[in-house]
Deep mutational scan, measured.
Amino acid sequence: SQHQEELPPPPLPPGWEEKVDNLGRTYYVNHNNRTTQWHRPSLMDVSSE
């Protein structure tokens, strides 16, 4: 059986914070524009500005 090492997730872009809601779900807060989202932001998402 193949065992895959879990890679650590990439660092969050500046201004982002990973949080967990009261149901144990992980979400991400963008403090730059005060938004939240479910999927993890990547540095590539942000660098397109």
Rank of each mutant, 00 (worst) to 15 (best):
L7K: 14
Y27W: 05
E18D: 03
W16F: 13
P9S: 07
Y27E: 02
P13K: 03
E18W: 03
R25G: 07
S42H: 05
Q2R: 01
P9C: 08
N22L: 07
R34D: 11
S1G: 02
L23C: 13
P10H: 11
R25V: 11
L23Q: 13
W16Q: 02
S1H: 03
R40A: 07
L7D: 14
E17N: 02
L43Q: 05
Q4G: 00
N32D: 13
N22S: 14
P10D: 08
N33F: 14
T26W: 03
N22M: 09
H39V: 11
N22P: 12
N33T: 15
V20K: 10
P10V: 13
Q37C: 11
R40P: 08
T36F: 02
V20P: 04
H3T: 05
Y27C: 03
L43R: 12
P41N: 00
W38C: 11
N32T: 09
R34L: 06
E49P: 15
P10E: 10
H3F: 09
W16C: 06
S47F: 08
S1M: 15
E17M: 08
Y28S: 01
P9F: 05
N22T: 14
N30Y: 04
S42G: 10
E18Y: 05
P10I: 10
G15D: 06
S47K: 07
M44V: 05
P11N: 04
S48C: 08
N33C: 09
Y28I: 01
S42Q: 14
R25L: 08
S1Q: 00
S42D: 12
L43M: 13
G24L: 03
V29T: 06
R34P: 05
P13N: 06
V46H: 05
H39E: 12
D21M: 01
V29Y: 13
T35Q: 06
N22Y: 14
H3C: 05
D21W: 00
T26K: 15
E5T: 15
G24W: 01
P9Y: 04
W38P: 13
V20M: 09
D45A: 09
Q37R: 02
N30R: 02
H31Q: 06
R25E: 14
E5A: 00
W16G: 03
Y28V: 01
R34I: 05
L12V: 15
H31M: 13
D45L: 08
S48I: 15
R25S: 13
T36S: 07
S42E: 14
H39P: 08
P13V: 07
V29I: 04
P14Q: 10
V46I: 12
R25K: 12
R34G: 13
R40V: 06
T35K: 11
D45H: 15
E17G: 05
S47T: 11
H39R: 12
S42R: 12
S48A: 09
P8E: 10
L7I: 15
P14M: 13
R34Y: 07
E18N: 06
N32L: 07
Y27M: 07
